[in-house]
Amino acid sequence: MAEVVFFLAAIGALAGAVGTVAVRNPFYSVLALVMHLLSLALLFLLLRSEFVAAAQVVVYAGAVMVLYMFVVAYVGGTSMPLGPGGTRSMRIGSIVFAGVLFVELAIAILGTGLKALGTEGAPYEPGFGTPARIGELLLTKFLLPFEIASFLLLIAAVGAVTLARRRGGLHDAEEQRITPLDLVRPVSTGTMAEAVGTRTNATTRERTGLEYGGHSGRAGPEDGDDGERTGLEAGVAPGGDTGPEDR
């Protein structure tokens, strides 16, 4: 029974991996990767690593794949297809390279004395790889590496947010939504649009600094119209005008 499930999971993992690299639609590619990771978790389960299998499902098939989906939806929204790219020679070269590596690994596997281990493997204790066992180890023997790993996760989270933060990179006119309400409303009213920077700070600076010489009061409709136009010009100008004070 275990053999049957093992081979089914192995076939699922291999099929998922092939689908990940071969499918043209990037969304199907991510779904194939989810299937691959679930099958891999099943393989871990059959190899008596229950905690690793659970972590694989929760962390990978759950959390990281959502991240993948978001990034594919964000990056793949252009006219350029996201599927398997590259030239034909590049693809053939990759197949040759991967095939050579697999043959080399197969020779290495066949050349070792792994068969001496048999099909059952070494005897193991009943509680091998269960969450209780791993958790006990994490809090006693491997406490310091555990804490270091968590600190590393914190650093990576902060770094990812810092890297992916919007800082005046995409100067697109369509990014700046101007509603009719903006024409009659003064700038520094503390709206959420100002807080997240949808309305650029250049607009605020133009209107408060140059036209009013200080903090803006109530602006009339015709002044607002004028200010929005200058703000729009400042917004579409390519980078460089966004100094550190804009961040």
Binding site: A2, F6, V21, G86, A98, L105, L114, G118, T119
Partner: peptide
């Protein structure tokens, strides 16, 4: 189901992953 089979599956997966890394441009 022995260790050889497990490692063979892992080697195949590694080869597929290597193909993906080398052939994709995105």
């Amino acid at each position: 189901m022995s260790l050889t089979v497990v490692i063979a599956v892992a080697a195949l997966l590694f080869g597929i992953g290597l193909y993906g890394v080398l052939s994709q441009t995105n």
